[in-house]
Design a protein around this nucleic acid. Structure first.
Lengths: 145, 145
DNA sequence: GTATATGCAAAGTCTTTGCATCGTT
DNA sequence: AACGATGCAAAGACTTTGCATATAC
């Protein structure tokens, strides 16, 4: 078993939650997605390839749990459903391409500095920073779109 | 009439849209709100004090139009309804206090630099930057919350 | 065996749309 | 008078919740 899979199992057990096939499956789908950002619906569709009865409600409940345990991360990007990914330690921002719809993310030291600045200059204790940048990605620009 | 009210009237006329009491009213409500960020529902409630029949659907349609004309700006802050404000020229980020729910915003030179960096280093042409910072505001921290 | 998780369906929240009527131009 | 805007109600998109059944512990 991979390091990451173990991490999820232990976090579930430690928090007194049960280890169900559904929870493991959602976590697997999320990990296998890699950089891709999946909506609850997409996660459900993928999970149903293994467990046909898999229900959207369970996906939402599982994602909420994983988020609570710090394992998954939800992001709302303008319209449409929220997207999910494995939580990363570093602050990062999302680059959303208006043309092809691709969503990439990318750690940025600048965000850390912003947090420090907000506390010193404005007394605001930042806990979560979410930067969403909309624009046109490199590929689409090269293709003249 | 104020400079800002004129601006809205002219933008509406110039774009071939009609100048209706409802549109003027939504714009007024938005302007009078100052720094406050209002949801469509709140705008509707406020507008109904002047025009009791005022309808939520009209609020949404009007806000969409004002946004299209660059006069109003929508922001989605986590859960709950989107909030609206008069559009400002400068990029700015939103500070959301997790304790008292206050929403403030505050221009930041850092965001401009991020846009430049994204283009040079990653070929991504940023068009819109939206930074939402969640945390605890100065007042709530002083009150030990 | 017991308490928690799931599946299903129904409800909830926020937003958009269809259509007849009204009002601006 | 003509065409766009409004009000109302209904539908839509996404997410949450209630409840009976199933299952991990």
């Amino acid at each position: 078993m991979t390091r990451q899979a173990e991490q999820a199992e232990q976090a579930l057990r430690a928090s007194g939650h049960r280890l169900t096939p559904q929870r493991i499956l959602v976590w697997d789908v999320l990990r296998r997605a890699g950089d891709r950002h999946l909506s609850a619906e997409e996660i459900c569709a993928e999970a149903q390839r293994t467990v046909p009865a898999f229900n959207l409600a369970s996906v939402y409940r599982t994602l909420a749990l994983l988020a609570e345990l710090g394992l998954a991360r939800e992001t709302r990007l303008g319209d449409g459903p929220a997207v999910w990914e494995v939580a990363h330690d570093d602050e990062h921002h999302h680059l959303v391409c208006r043309v092809c719809g691709s969503i990439t993310h990318h750690p940025d030291e600048v965000l850390d500095r912003i947090a420090g600045h907000l506390l010193e200059a404005h007394g605001f204790a930042a806990e979560e920073l979410e930067l969403v940048v909309t624009g046109v990605c490199e590929d689409c620009r090269a293709a003249g779109r």
